[in-house]
Design a protein around this nucleic acid. Structure first.
Lengths: 178, 178
DNA sequence: CAATCAATGTAGCAGATGCTACGTTCGTGG
DNA sequence: CCACGAACGTAGCATCTGCTACATTGATTG
């Protein structure tokens, strides 16, 4: 594992804990036991570092999601996916994804590109779990898109509205599409 | 109309066009024909300015949404609401809401509070239009929460995925809950 | 007329930002 | 042995950030 890879993993941990918006090199470097100087040295620019962090985060959450067991029904799949979504590790990745998407709302790079790239694999990951749970291959992609959108939206307001409200919305969605 | 109110309206226009993340006083002031000095003078701090801008934006979008005519069915209401959501003026407000929510993901003020406050009135506004469209008073609030979440989620990725994908998700949602 | 006070200009502060210039250590290959 | 290049430290630059100190205008009001 190269030094750059180590730094990427550690930087991802830091960004997951402290947020992507307002991330700056000096505090990050200090937490990693290095200097802003060295981060630029290894990554070339802050943008490249951010791109690497976002990719790492995305791969982590896809790995966790991809390891989900099959659910017993579509309805159960929605609930199970939400529980995975809000499990500590995945939740942090989703939160950072939302931050990246917000940063990319005006097309700003590297956020917009990273988010676009993440999204493809991510929808596949959701669809795959649906298929494993017995959903038809033809129906899965569109369901995945709907579930993904709703989950992201719930996620935006969850810290404010509370977990119970969030849960209810998810259950209503499950009920509606099942 | 006081000078502060004028500035609030103009600052809201500017923030809607240029984004909330990374908003800074000097460029904003220059666009408004004043100085950062005067913005602080009138608002006390950047945070208060931001809070005023968010409240103004929220009121604008609620006014536009509140003026929607009744739809002919729940299914039509979802479609109509999405069209209103993505209409130029409302869309900018929603985009800023998403930015504010992302900024508030870690509890940062004044974003978290502003978002929390916006959300209450906003869900009421959606529910009211549903009721006007013939949805039962008991069912409307939970449907509003689901619609709001899904729309926000679709909104996050819409600039990347495109309008057609977004539209399809919305139609799938309409189909599911109708 | 005098006094007050809101409104504004000019200048600047202290800190943070991404990034660079420059020099040094140190292990490796010719 | 020695030259080279990767890896790193120190210091700094230019710019931006929110915000403040201070002085001045100008209109209102006793």
């Amino acid at each position: 594992m190269s030094k750059r890879d180590d730094l990427t993993e550690a930087a991802t941990d830091y960004a997951l804990a402290h947020g992507l918006i307002g991330l700056s090199l000096r505090p990050l470097a200090a937490a990693l036991g290095t200097s802003d100087r060295m981060l630029i040295y290894h990554f070339g620019s802050k943008d490249e570092l951010v791109a690497a962090v976002l990719e790492t985060s995305n791969q982590r959450s896809m790995a966790l999601f991809g390891a989900m067991p099959p659910s017993t029904s579509l309805r159960a799949a929605v609930i199970d996916q939400w529980e995975m979504w809000t499990a500590q590790q995945v939740q942090q990745c989703q939160r950072m994804y939302v931050e990246a998407a917000a940063l990319g709302l005006f097309g700003r790079e590297p956020y917009a590109s990273s988010v676009r790239e993440s999204n493809v694999g991510w929808l596949d990951t959701i669809a795959a779990q649906l298929i494993r749970s017995g959903v038809g291959v033809d129906r899965a992609p569109r369901l995945a898109a709907l579930i993904d959108a709703t989950f992201n939206g719930v996620f935006l307001d969850r810290p404010l509205d509370g977990d119970d409200t969030a849960r209810q919305i998810v259950e209503d969605l499950a009920e509606a599409i099942a």
